[in-house]
């Protein structure tokens, strides 16, 4: 019970802070002072207190999109263990529920974008849909690498078994899986090198342009949902690389937090030193990610045999 409460507390307070932390890393890398780490909290608080503007073209889909996406992410966030061995919700087969919920959230956001009838948002939705589809095999292969050794398609079982067996130290396939998952993470969260979250030109945007027309509380929901997704995906990434000790919740939470903030530093530094890929290169990038994850599976098979 305590662990469930810690889990939920982490989900409430972690995500927006993590985003602010990435911003801070980026500004430090560019030798700027940068906004406060809690800036995202202020932003969301301000958005929640604002009114909203709705295009006359839009219907209920536009308003429902951010809420559906946030609800899906919230449930998905309960499937990923943050406090050691067990997540608040865990089933045999929950990795497929997890990916299904992400797809439902994306589906709702794509419809919300198409609802505006804007060429820009259509363009963004089209790119998000295409790159989302191409990233899908990488995600599933990574999930297979993570869960196959324990014989149960569940995050909780897989990660607690990794803690027992030593994870990466025993299974080099996990390293390849982590690389592929990193590629999935930057695609799903629209970070460099796939997309630049700070770009200001609609024509080059992917994720940002999908939510171009949202304002007020709707935009706040979008931001919270995005931060929450970042939080759980980085948690999975940490789990792949570090066997988080089970049975000691405090130590586990400490490890996870340290890991996630290191991931955030990694994201921030990557965004400071490299540019985004040309749009036509993205499919190659994603196929490479799938191939790496597939090699991870082969490594596992050879290791077992």
């Amino acid at each position: 019970m305590v662990e469930v409460i810690i889990h939920i507390v982490l989900l409430i307070f972690g995500p927006l802070t993590l985003l602010g932390f990435i911003d801070r890393v980026k500004s430090r890398a560019a030798r700027r002072a940068g906004p406060p780490i809690l800036q995202r909290w202020y932003d969301v608080a301000k958005l929640l207190r604002k009114g909203a503007v709705y295009s006359r073209t839009t219907t209920i889909f536009f308003k429902a999109g951010p809420m559906v996406a946030l609800a899906c992410t919230a449930i998905a966030a309960l499937l990923v263990p943050l406090t050691g061995d067990k997540a608040p919700l865990s089933f045999s087969g929950d990795i497929f529920l997890f990916s299904g919920l992400l797809v439902l959230g994306r589906f709702a956001m794509l419809l919300a974008a198409m609802d505006t009838g804007s060429a820009f948002e259509g363009m963004g939705a089209s790119r998000e849909a295409a790159f989302g589809a191409m990233a899908e095999p990488a995600l599933f292969l990574v999930l297979l690498v993570a869960t196959m050794p324990c014989g149960d398609a569940s995050f909780s079982t897989a990660f607690s078994q990794m803690a027992d067996t030593g994870g990466l130290t025993r299974d080099p396939g996990l390293l390849l899986a982590a690389i592929a998952f990193g590629a999935f993470l930057v695609t799903d969260l629209a970070r460099i090198p796939i997309d630049d979250p700070t770009t200001h030109l609609e024509l080059t945007m992917i994720h940002e342009v999908v939510v171009l027309d949202h304002s007020g509380p709707d935009l706040a929901f979008v931001t919270i949902g995005y931060a929450l997704r970042m939080w759980i995906l980085s948690a999975i990434f940490v789990h792949l690389l570090i066997p988080v000790p089970s049975g000691a919740p405090l130590l586990a939470v400490g490890t996870m937090l340290a890991g996630q903030f290191i991931v955030a530093i990694g994201v921030g530094i990557t965004e400071s030193v490299i540019a985004r890929l040309r749009m036509t290169r993205i499919p190659q990038f994603l196929i490479a990610a799938s191939v790496i994850a597939a090699i991870g599976i082969l490594v596992q098979f050879l290791g077992v045999a």
């Binding site: 609802d115 009838g117 259509g122 939705a125 849909a129 989302g132 589809a133 599933f140």
Partner: peptide
């Protein structure tokens, strides 16, 4: 093992197809 990523890709591409139809026909102006 091969079935898993294939099925996943099919799901993603189906989303493209049907958001395309639904978005074009029913949404916008």
């Amino acid at each position: 093992v091969a079935v898993v990523p294939i099925l996943a890709t099919l799901g993603g591409l189906t989303a493209v197809t049907f958001v395309k139809i639904f978005g074009t026909a029913f949404l916008g102006t």
